[in-house]
Amino acid sequence: MHLDHAPAHHGPAAVSADVTRPDGARRALRIGLGGPVGSGKTATVAALCRALRDEVSLAVVTNDIYTREDAEFLRREAVLPPERITAVETGACPHTAIRDDISANLEAVEDLEDGVGPLDLILVESGGDNLTATFSKGLVDAQIFVIDVAGGDDIPRKGGPGVTTADLLVVNKTDLAPYVGADLGRMAADARTQRAHLPVVFQSLRDGAGVRDVAGWVRERLTAWTA
């Protein structure tokens, strides 16, 4: 309902998913990254930052469970200037902060646009949670779900909202498949069954496989957003 509001009437702060900033400019595209603990979300965010930072103006919001570790990892890795990385505190419930009560994340996103903007892209990373955690559409425009082969090659078959509905499914750490006995072919087939035509990328940050595909998918989204 708020997509139609004229921002001039409604004062300074966007309510939630409004596509324009208070000054009338188009806001940044917001992409969420979710997935289980240890699947490589933060590493994927870091890889995306490295791939895209020279082309677009971007920033990151992390949702940590009880520390600011993810944000600190990204700062340490220097994937972006520190002022472009914000940590949201989630009161031990990252899925609440990205889905049920997105107010703190929206505030973080707004402050980044105010502080270091204009921005083209904001990556919102969820704290490692479970297979049911998905982002609210009030917070992100598209979401990536990151799982890894070591978490079990039956995850795509089991499904769950993240696996079945995310706009992009990333199956990470494919280089570990031989060591953990994961059947990549079976994972791909199960994912196709669960996701119909939604895309899947097999990624290994160690050998670089798939990294370009994930960045390419984000670029397509950006093109569509700014069109």
Binding site: H2, H9, H10, G11, P12, A13, V15, S16, S103, A104, L106, E107
Partner: peptide
């Protein structure tokens, strides 16, 4: 911080000029 978050939720839930004024 909580006031700002509540104001966002409130403006979406019960739109009012008074709340918009407070946000400004």
């Amino acid at each position: 911080r909580l006031g700002r978050q509540l104001l966002r939720a409130a403006r979406a839930t019960w739109p009012s000029d008074e709340l918009d004024g407070l946000a400004r």
